[in-house]
């Protein structure tokens, strides 16, 4: 086993692409080290990307925000502009693990771990976030929902690294929110979760909406029917009821040690409804 710390993204990609055996990318390590400890992975090469310039930064650009792959969640929580623009994404990122884990974990790692229960992913999907991928054949930008292929699997090719997550600049009257259900108040993996992102028109009616559910299917679900329910509404009671119903219906959950199918179905709707109300209020709706 070797540990290397490349100083450029090209170096990192080159090393990963040319590595004959199993290689692992290390940013926050909060998933990788747990898997190594449990004997689930034994990489021959660990590529620590934290020394690559720019990967540890959050940049505010003309188009929005660019969040480097090695930025820990705790840093996102300290970025006032990002929190103001995308409170749902930031609160989701701040729900991953404990304070201790927050100091290390990254939303890119959360995405690439490809767990259907990843906290930041439904929020990012709802936000329409994009992933900037660097690989042997150059750069490409794809919607985050196309990164996970199934539990523990991604669509990334050999040698590819997600360099950054892009979030759009916010128009006026926009808000997002993320809620998850856990049995305790902290430290648990989401049993089921919901992210909602809304923009409103001048009259306070929903103009655009994205609704995503976590731990409700093998990958995060973008529920387009739920968005259609919301668009044009002011989140009246009937709309919220329909939202909950549509979300519950869209779930394809499993029974496991964290929850039952019935529980996940029911609570997915409850959370979507509650998240929608919060997102609406954040967007300035009443």
């Amino acid at each position: 086993m070797r540990y290397i710390r490349p100083l450029s993204i090209e170096d990192a990609v080159g090393t990963l692409a040319s590595s004959a055996r199993t290689a692992a990318i290390l940013a926050g390590g909060s998933d990788l080290l747990v898997r190594m400890k449990g004997g689930f992975v034994e990489p021959d090469l660990i590529v620590d990307i934290k020394a690559v310039p720019g990967l540890g930064d959050v940049q505010e650009t003309a188009e929005g925000f660019r969040i480097g792959a090695a930025v820990p969640s705790a840093v996102l929580g300290e970025n006032t502009a990002l929190k103001k623009a995308w409170p749902g994404v930031v609160e989701a990122a701040r729900l991953i693990g404990s304070k201790q884990v927050q100091g290390r974990c990254t939303i890119v790692g959360n995405l690439c771990n490809a767990s259907p229960a990843a906290d930041s992913v439904p929020a990012m999907v709802a936000a329409g976030a994009k992933a900037v991928i660097v690989g042997p054949s150059g750069r490409r930008t794809i919607p985050v929902e196309t990164v996970p292929a199934g539990p523990g699997r991604t669509t990334l090719a050999k040698g590819e690294i997600i360099e950054a997550i892009l979030l759009d600049k916010r128009p006026p009257h926009a808000g997002d929110a993320y809620l998850r259900f856990i049995p305790r108040t902290e430290m648990d993996i989401a049993v089921v979760s919901a992210g909602v992102n809304l923009t409103l028109d001048e009259k306070g009616a929903v103009k655009t909406a994205r609704v995503a559910l976590g731990a409700a299917a093998p990958t995060v679900l973008l529920v387009e029917e739920a968005a259609e329910v919301l668009v044009g509404s002011k989140l009246d009671e009937a709309t919220l009821e329909r939202l909950a119903k549509v979300c519950s219906g869209a779930c394809r959950p499993i029974d496991d040690k964290r929850g039952t199918i019935e529980f996940r179905r029911k609570v997915a709707g409850v959370l979507a409804r509650r998240a929608a109300v919060t997102a609406y209020q954040r967007a300035g709706g009443k």
Partner: peptide, 28 residues
């Protein structure tokens, strides 16, 4: 409220760790 051993049909323990064997945390 939350603590329990969860066995699968195969008779194997599914939650042998503090992540899914949920003892109360300070905020609980």
């Amino acid at each position: 409220l939350n603590e329990e051993y969860i066995y699968g049909k195969d008779g194997r323990l599914q939650n042998a760790g503090f992540l899914d064997y949920r003892i109360p945390v300070c905020s609980d």
